[in-house]
């Protein structure tokens, strides 16, 4: 076991997969000599050179589309979108081309592509810190969940970041990989020695409990755990489930937990309306309704752009709001 930062886990996954497979390449803005704006691609350029670590002009549609073409030829490109927010520029390429290629060619061609996207608001153990404004702080995962043909992954810990990114690179489909950028330099934990793979489509029970299931994604997992530790003192026991992969979703783990506790709180950083929590809520309502002792609650950001500065804290799903939702159900 080695103590590793979330950002180092991402970097390690890239190093390992590029070492393993000579057709894994990295492409994006400032990924080569700069090592990425956040440092996720550090040292890749020194190790693998300019043919495999490719800096591009600012042209997200262009380089994402080009990566799709490389993937169609069987290469395994990993695109870095500098901030997840900027993926809007490349959305056409991803939804029109990447997502539908397997279907349109009846499986003759597929797109083994990974798109890495740093998303979200700065966090620490205490909660949300400051926002970088409406165009550098969003959590756009649900935009992609609605496009059949794309897989969507959201690791919440260094070990998952490592294991899921390696699996995403080996997957035969386009995988949208959301890295909570606030975790990059704040989330430090042990990762297993040796090759560590986490399969896509498998949720994880982060903490077992009996009274309420809290389903949390990304940085909300850390927040939910903090709430659980606090509520322990009051004799309230939370079970925390991290889906880890949103598409395909591990419904079973969620439903099993809700069957045990009979109560569900869903928390994510994106706004509530038509967010991924709505999907989880629907899954529970459709398949676990009989198990419910109380209504499902969602704790999400307000339906508004992410405000800059400290104002963001007035709008985010805080630990206090999670706790209040839990207490409401008991």
């Amino acid at each position: 076991m080695t103590e590793t930062l979330y950002i180092q886990a991402i970097n390690q996954a890239l190093h390992e997969e590029m070492e393993r497979d000579a057709e894994v390449i990295v492409i994006g803005l400032d990924v080569a000599r700069q090592g990425g704006l956040f440092g996720a691609t550090r040292k890749l350029y020194d190790r693998f050179g300019a043919d495999r670590v490719i800096d591009t002009p600012i042209s997200e549609a262009g380089f994402t589309g080009a990566a799709i073409g490389m993937a169609m030829e069987g290469m395994r490109p990993v695109v870095e979108i500098q901030f997840a927010d900027f993926v809007t520029v490349a959305f056409d390429q991803l939804s029109t081309v990447a997502a539908k290629m397997h279907f349109m060619t009846r499986g003759a061609t597929h797109v083994p592509l990974v798109v890495r996207m740093p998303y979200g608001v700065n966090v620490s153990g205490e909660g949300y810190m400051t926002g970088a404004g409406p165009h550098h702080s969003q959590s756009p995962e649900n935009w992609f969940c609605h496009v059949a043909g794309l897989k969507v992954v959201m690791p919440s810990s260094p070990a998952d970041a490592l294991g899921l990114l390696k699996s995403a690179i080996r997957d035969e489909n386009p995988v949208m990989f959301f890295e909570q950028k606030g975790l990059y330099y704040t989330s430090r934990a042990e990762i297993p020695d040796g090759e560590h793979l986490v399969p896509l489509g498998r949720a994880q029970v982060k903490r077992t409990g009996s009274d309420v299931t809290v389903i949390a994604t990304g940085a909300m997992v850390m927040q939910a755990i903090a709430v659980a530790e606090k509520l322990d003192a009051d004799g309230i026991s939370l079970e925390i489930v991290d889906p880890r992969t949103l598409v395909p979703l591990d419904r079973e783990t969620i439903l099993t937990s809700v069957a045990k506790t009979g109560r569900a709180v869903i928390t994510h950083e994106a706004p509530a309306t038509a967010g991924f929590g709505a999907e989880i809520s629907a899954v529970i309502a459709e398949h676990g309704f009989a198990d419910l002792k109380a209504p499902i609650r969602r704790v999400c950001a307000l339906d508004m752009p992410v405000p800059p500065g400290s104002m963001v804290r007035a709008t985010m799903p805080t630990q206090g709001r999670i706790e209040a939702a839990v207490r409401e159900l008991l």
Binding site: L29, Q34, D55, T56, P57, I58
Partner: peptide, 10 residues
């Protein structure tokens, strides 16, 4: 553009 020299971007 950040680290990218213009001579490499066009």
């Amino acid at each position: 553009a950040v680290s990218m020299p213009t001579s490499e971007a066009t």
